[in-house]
Every structure is written in structure tokens, then in C-alpha cells.
Design a protein around this nucleic acid. Sequence first.
DNA 1: CTGTTAGCGCTTTCAT
DNA 2: ATGAAAGCGCTAACAG
Lengths: 360, 360
Amino acid sequence: MENNAKKRQRPGRANIKLEDVAIHAGVSPATVSRFLNNPKVVSEEAKKRIKAAIATLGYMPHRAARALASNHSRTIGAVVPTLDNAIFSRQIMAFQNRLAFNGYTLLLAVSEYDADSEFQQARVLLEHGVEALMLVGERRSAEFYSLLTRVGVPFVNTWLYRSDSIHPCCGFIHDSTQQVLVDHLVGLGHRRLSVITGQPENNDRVATRLNAIVAALESHGLDLDPRCVINTHYSYADGREALRRLMALDEQPTAVLAGNDVLASGVLFEAHSQGIDVPGHLSVTGFGDLAISEHLYPPLTTIRTPKEEIGEAAADFLIARLAGRETPDRTELPARFCLRASTGPAATPALAHGIGGDGF
Amino acid sequence: MENNAKKRQRPGRANIKLEDVAIHAGVSPATVSRFLNNPKVVSEEAKKRIKAAIATLGYMPHRAARALASNHSRTIGAVVPTLDNAIFSRQIMAFQNRLAFNGYTLLLAVSEYDADSEFQQARVLLEHGVEALMLVGERRSAEFYSLLTRVGVPFVNTWLYRSDSIHPCCGFIHDSTQQVLVDHLVGLGHRRLSVITGQPENNDRVATRLNAIVAALESHGLDLDPRCVINTHYSYADGREALRRLMALDEQPTAVLAGNDVLASGVLFEAHSQGIDVPGHLSVTGFGDLAISEHLYPPLTTIRTPKEEIGEAAADFLIARLAGRETPDRTELPARFCLRASTGPAATPALAHGIGGDGF
DNA sequence: CTGTTAGCGCTTTCAT
DNA sequence: ATGAAAGCGCTAACAG
């Protein structure tokens, strides 16, 4: 017992291996391996003894060794822009839950809306041998896509659906969500709309929605004054500040399309403290339908996005692919219009510096 | 080129391995390995050729093989109760960010506040060879702790600090946060307080805070009417409903201590729609200080918890441990009292069915 | 500074 | 149904 003293103990693991279990159970390692991976080919007798051995020894399989030998890591990766937004956290929760249920473990990375970081992190996940990858959005470098196909792991772009996408995707059609919102507002008599949204450079969904708004307005013969478009970050304070800037215009918009519910909430808060009546003087729409949105004053008219559904569908898709099952490349999970009380008929445009007659 | 046709291609990986790089660069595999792990011991000449080989072949290291050979997976695991709560998502973001910066990858699991699930998921992470583990809370089975010590991976309990804890921890002292809140309210003249919080059975922090409230009240010679304690879940709707139940009591409380800011928001929303004046008729406190809390009507008096700081401190602690660096077992990251406008002097207790004189 | 040589713990043919 | 044996891709002595 002193000959291999130099052989370092695995730090960080109970040192019991499959072979120990085999010895203890009086079978070969191969049989224990079969028991672990395909128990039905093992005799009842052996099964019983192996089970007992595992229990008494407290054996834990070594997944890296298994991954090396079998080419299956039983891990799936995800790279999301942030977890700050309840939207992605819910997607990830649903995703992880589905993975765990199917015996997969999640490797998670956050890109912070940075394309290079997304690429870099995805590389690392691939090095770790993730068998599949969930991503957000679809705009990424050719190099990234070529890595993905070269490595050959299944992947899925989430949060968007395009029937003509060349990549697997699951999500909804962003354009129509904005069309619905614009139709709604224009139908209420709004002619001068404004937009407060994120950074289209780092976010293809934002870019798509912005274009869709312009197109929708055009379809009504309206256009979008560039001064009425504010690109900002996703915080309450940013939403508030954006509204202040909009209200400082000499021709004020009668409605604001906020890029997400956080921004919309900020707008509502700022409107409240400035005594701007919503929807009397100003209509506000959001995007995302956070849990809080229906409770705001007034409850927010918004688009409900299928956060959990996307996470689940992405997991199901990848798992099906890994199992060799046929499954459609693209899944549409519709977003829904939620009509609430933050939108109403357009008032005559408030005059600069002349708002705030009632409220407050 | 047909002799090893049976040798399956690694599905899911570019088939280039370290040996190929070595051949291409005209060096031995060992040198390539050194280049990867400790470049400074490799000659400039070799470095150059290896770099080129890696680039032209598009080589990606196989981390499972590396983990097997070196006993280092370069992964760290985390099990959190949920990501629904902005609190844990921010912690995880900060944690992951710090890990990635130090070359570690995050394996994430969600327990949904279930002790068995937490144990089970931690096991899986350990099987995957995580070199360290971040957990939330400290109440778990002896079996769990014994696994942790047997396996010998560093771990840290987060979201709490106890100077006498036998386990590494980072967070704050829950008791004093509640003491501050109670002192504040009692100082304002409140004598009949109520509590709306989570499920103490599944959450040791909740249990601790609840006990701390009772103790704090006692220190003022007050006690907590059991009918004024509502254990519920963390949603806006639950907060609203809880307030309704409280207001239905024949002796109504003049203040509510909500277990977190989501619940507190729900209380505020319900108060608003019932026309209950806050803080005129009812004072409300939260816990957590979410981004939205300062924007609510009225802005919420709450406790700011150090979410990101906990994630970072946990990462730093584990990384230091893995690097063999000395580092204290326990880190206190104080929570701070945020006095805002949702608390005020106690009114004379509102009579049952007689509230709501002004508002709405 | 570099190459050679053994494995890391497990799976998987191929026999039996 | 089971065992023997040959690696999976990489690292880590050791020797030079």
C-alpha cells in the first residue's frame, strides 16, 4: 500500500470508481457500466449486487471519463444576453428544468449583449463538450455559424421565428407584434407616435421591431419622426429619462411604444410624477408582459411573449435532435396582444410646456 | 483511408485533436499541451508553429479529456432556488461573470426551493466534476453536508452570514435587518404589525427573518398576532391577496412587513386599488430593494441586499480556494436600510370595513 | 526546453 | 448475460 504513494488522490472526488464497484459486486467493470447505461441487459442477480455495492461505497460516476469514452457529455449549453431581464431568466429556468428532467445538465454563459463575448463563450461551452446549444437571436458572424456547423452540434436560435430562416429557431414573428400595436394606436387616433427602445446594433430583435414599426406606420401613411425615437438601455430610470426627452420636444407624441415592459414602466412612473394622464394625454405600450405589468397604474397594454414556452420548446427540440428523433426545425410560439388600460383615444396634441393640467 | 471506417466520428466535435496539432507543428503532443497550459515554458519558435497549427486546423481542446487527465474540470457549479426572483439572477450573473473572467465555466441548476432537488442537482454537478459549488442558504441534510466534505470540493453558502457558522458563507445577518425594520416601525408608533412572507419550511432565510421579527417585537414588549402572519408565495397577486386577508381582520394592523419587494409591491398595488392610503393608513416595508422599488407609489421603504456582491464574493472565495490561496471562510456583506416613503407614523387603527375614506 | 511513456475512469467492440 | 482488452484525448512525471 505504499508503492503508489506518489499517485495523487483525485482532489475533489470521492475516490471510488467503477472498477471498485465491480470488484465489490464480484462482476466485471463492463457489467457495471452496462448497469449504469442500459440496465435491462444485466441479470437481476448482478443488478442487485451492483446496486448494493454502489450504495455501500457511495459511488458517483465520473462524467468526464464517461464523456471521453462515450462521446456523450450529457450537457447542453446556453448563451443568453443577460439574466437581468426576467424574460431570459424565465426562459432559462424552463429550459434547465426540461434538461434536468431528461438527464442533461445546463452549462450557462451570459454575453451581456456582446457578439464577441457570445462567440467566445459558446466556444468554451463547445470545448466543454456540450452536445447542443441554445442561443438567443440569429444575427451572428459567419465564423460563428461556420464553427457551429463544423462542430456539428445541434443548436437553436430563440426569441424569433422566421419561416424562411436557414437555422433552427423557436419564437415568434416580431414584425406582426409591432404591427398589432401600431394598428391599435392608429385606430385610436394617434398620428404622432414615439419609440423608446434598446440598441439595435447589439440586438437583432430590437432592430427587427424598430423596422416593423416604421413599416406599420407606413402602411397607415404615417412616418416616424427620428426625434421621436430614443435608443437607450433597459432600466426604469432610462425609461423615465426617455419620456422626459420626448416631452421636451416642441411637437409632443401622443403615444409611446416602449421596447419592453421595464421601459414602459419607467414611462408610466415618469408620467405619474409629472402629472401626465395616461392614457388621457399619452398612450403607452410595452413589450414582454412582465408579471408586474398588469398591476401597474394604469395596467399596461403590451405584448405577452412566450418566455417559458420558448425555453421548453428549445429544450425539446435539442433533446429530440440528440435522440435522433425527427422534429421540425422551426417552431412558432405566438406572442399575444394584451389590451389593458394604458392606451386610449388620442388627445389633441398637448402643447409644449402646457401639459399636466389635471393629475398630481 | 478506409481501414478505420468503423471508428465513429465524434459526433458534436471537430475531429482535430492535440496530436494533430503536434504533428502539424512538428513537435510532440507534450509540447502542445505545455503551450496550452503553461506557455512560458515553451520556446518562441515552437510557440509560433503551434499557434499557426491551431489556427489552420481550427483546433479546440477537449475539456473532458483534459479534466480526466488533469483532475481539473475548470467548471464550478451553482444551485439556486429560482431565477424568477431578480435577486438570484443578479447573483448568478455576477458569479458567472467572475468565473468566466477566471477561466471557469458555470454549471447551473435550479432547485425550486426543494431540498431533495437541491441535493440531487448538486450530486449531478459533482459527478460532472465541478471543482467548487455555490449554494444558497445553509439548512440542508447531514447527508448533503457529508457528501460535500467527503468529495472535498470547496463550497460556500450564500445569502447569509453567521460568525459562528461551521461552513463557509457569504451574505448578511438577517436578524438585524428585521430588527431595523421593526425599530423603525415601532418608532413611528406602530403597535400592531403584520407579516407577509414566504414558506419558512423551504427557506432558512425566511425562517430566520420571521424569528427575528418576533424577537425584535419582543424587545419592544410587543407580540405578533398569529393571524397577522401570512405565509404565501412570491408573486404580486399573492401580495395583493395577503393584504386583502389582513384588511379583513377585525383588528387591522397598521403596518405590514413584506418578505420581499415583490410581495410589498403587491401590497402597494392592492392598497392603491382599495384606496388605502400608504403610509397614511398603512405603512409597508419590503425586503431586497429591487430596481423598481424606488419608483413605486409611494417609493418603498426596504432593505437593500447585496445581490451582485454576494455573487462576486462567492466566486472570489471559491476561486481563491481552488488556487490554494488563503481566504477567510466567512464574508459579511451588509444589507442596508433604505428609508423611503411607504412608511410613516401610525394612524389610529382603521376600523374594520371603515377604511378607504379618501383615494379612489 | 522537449520527447517518451503511462495512465485518468469509463465505454465498447469482440468473444464467449 | 458477461468478461477482456483497447482505447477516448489529454496531462504529467521522468529523462534527456
